[in-house]
Design a protein around this nucleic acid. Structure first.
Lengths: 244, 244
DNA sequence: TAGTGGTCTAGACCACTAT
DNA sequence: TAGTGGTCTAGACCACTAG
């Protein structure tokens, strides 16, 4: 069997192979063990190093693992890694089998505070867009989210309807600004009254606070966000590796 | 300048290069930008692919980042990534500049419960070692930790004094069992009374619960642990990447 | 012994950035 | 134009595992 890849240089071969394998894994095309690296190289008509690059990606997600001298195997634990969802709240909820929706509570331009200035690498007096959203999953409150974006990078951002459009899609399609990596700090807290009310929990109930700063490929910070999850509805899963 | 590496095959060249670069980065040997990949290849007398493997490791930790057509740069944000500390509590505390210590509260052999059986892939009736420790940083309670280990993998584990020896060191040196990767689930909770007392916080205070399952290279689970951190003392930092 | 993943080489071409 | 990182090739040898 010879699989064909797009070779016009727009999408790296290893990315295409990784995505193809991901689909096949999700559809249980492999019982447990994947074809050997040499066989995959032949199947996709690429070198073995290219196959290894594709497998490395899936390995770091915890989707597969290797045994020296034995082979490559599918990780049968059905983990849904938070890391994998560097695409935003909506995608993560969908992958969890939930229907996401949002309520925009606030959207305005304002002066950046000291923490936001530091996160986004801004100077004194810089302005940001401040977006406050209630995030729902299956129409039930899941998280309260405060997002800050540098105003100078996204002129006229307030012209977009963020009720209907994904923020990341707006940034990507209209400003050519795409997330590439991010820093996240997770901590536990007691819900302040105003946020507890929005989330539908009692004041002081435990919440998981995820503070995320998102960067482009050239390491420019484009977003600082605080997502306050209901502890009874959300847990964050990570996959750690000595190779990372 | 020609750097020499150990070439007896015991430690991969890319690992040695990564560690050498890590030290140089910590000592601010590079102002901001690293030498180019081609220059590093020459300096260490290896191929460029080997250098890239070393850099990939540091990139996934968030220690460095790349700009196409420009170069490789040190990430100046002083983040202390939780992922990097796949070595245990002690190492993580030291990297945070704190002095770690432990108090063993319980250490016994017992029948595995259903959750532990699932985590460790054990059958009904299997036994585990149960270890309960209070983890201190600078002599102040930081976390309460419950650890489960398959008894059949670690016979006579109870002969070791875990007050003085690192658990991971004991497993590595005496049972040749080394952690290679792990799954972690993080959630927020309210501290139950008994644990709150140990941690020195009021009952119901927010805590960050980290549930970790540790695997060897051949994907055998060797440990299931629940670490309950004081929310006022601990936050977990992660670095996420599209390449992972 | 045959097959596997882990490592490594010595090149190559590309798109991109800075000058 | 020169230099950079991103990608890819077509090999190679090794340690390891299974039969």
């Amino acid at each position: 069997m010879q699989e064909t890849l797009t070779r016009d240089g727009t999408v790296p071969l290893h990315t295409q192979i990784a995505e193809a394998l991901r689909v096949q894994i999700q559809n249980d095309q492999f019982k447990e063990n994947l074809p050997s690296e040499r066989e995959l190289a032949e199947r996709y008509a690429v070198s073995r190093m290219t196959v290894r690059q594709a497998l490395q990606k899936l390995r770091l997600e915890g989707l597969i693992y290797n045994e020296r001298g034995v082979g490559t195997f599918v990780n049968n634990r059905k983990i849904d890694v938070h890391t994998r969802n560097l695409n935003g709240f909506s995608e993560e909820m969908i992958s969890l089998g939930l229907r996401p929706s949002s309520l925009v509570l606030t959207f305005r331009r304002e002066l950046a505070g000291p923490d936001v200035m530091r996160d986004l690498g801004l100077g004194a007096g810089a302005e940001v867009f401040y977006l406050e959203r209630l995030r729902l999953a299956d129409d039930e409150p899941m998280a309260f989210e405060k997002t800050y974006l540098p105003a100078y990078l996204f002129p006229k951002l307030d012209k977009f309807d963020l009720t209907k459009n994904s923020l990341y899609r707006v940034l990507g399609e209209n400003y050519d600004s795409r997330m590439h990596h991010a820093e996240e700090v997770l901590e536990a807290a007691a819900a302040p009254k105003r946020i507890a009310e929005q989330l539908g929990v009692r004041g002081g109930a435990p919440v998981l606070v995820v503070h995320r700063v998102v960067f482009t490929e050239s390491h420019q910070p484009i977003e600082s966000a605080h997502t306050i999850y209901r502890a009874d509805r959300y847990r964050a899963t990570f996959y750690l590796s000595k190779n990372a």
